[in-house]
Simulated assay, not measured.
Amino acid sequence: MDRMHMTVMQQCVWVLLLWPNIFAVGTPIDCREDPANLSRCPTISQEKLLDRVIHHAELIYRVSEESCSLFEEMFIPFPLRLQSNQGGYACITKALLIPSSKSEIQQISDKWLLHSVLMLVQSWIEPLVYLQMTLERYDHAPDMLLNKTKWVSEKLISLEQGVVVLIKKMLDEGTLATTLTEQALLQYDVQPEMLESVMRDYTLLSCFKKDAHKMEAFLKLLKCRQTDKYNCA
Rank of each mutant, 00 (worst) to 15 (best):
E182Y: 10
R3W: 11
R3V: 11
I167Y: 03
T178C: 04
L80M: 15
H56R: 15
L18R: 06
L221C: 11
R137H: 09
P20M: 08
P99K: 09
A24I: 01
P35H: 03
V129Y: 05
T93Q: 03
T179V: 12
L17S: 05
E196K: 06
S206V: 11
L120D: 01
L156S: 01
M9E: 12
L222Y: 10
S67H: 01
C31Y: 03
T134W: 02
R52Q: 13
K210L: 15
Q10A: 13
T7M: 13
Q122T: 06
K229H: 09
K209Q: 12
Q10R: 15
M194H: 08
L118T: 00
R81M: 07
V13R: 12
F78K: 14
D189S: 13
V190D: 10
G162V: 01
L38T: 03
E47Y: 10
A177P: 05
T175Q: 10
I44H: 00
M144A: 09
Q226E: 10
Q11D: 14
A212H: 02
P28I: 05
S100A: 10
A233K: 12
L82E: 14
R3N: 09
Q106K: 13
Q183L: 13
E173I: 12
V164A: 03
E196V: 14
P35M: 13
V129W: 07
L128P: 01
E47F: 04
L128M: 06
G174K: 13
N85D: 13
S103R: 10
S84T: 08
T178G: 07
K48E: 11
I60Q: 03
S45P: 00
K220G: 00
R200M: 09
Q86M: 08
L118R: 00
E33Q: 13
M9D: 14
N85L: 15
D2G: 15
K168L: 13
V15Q: 13
F75W: 04
K48Y: 12
T178F: 02
L186D: 15
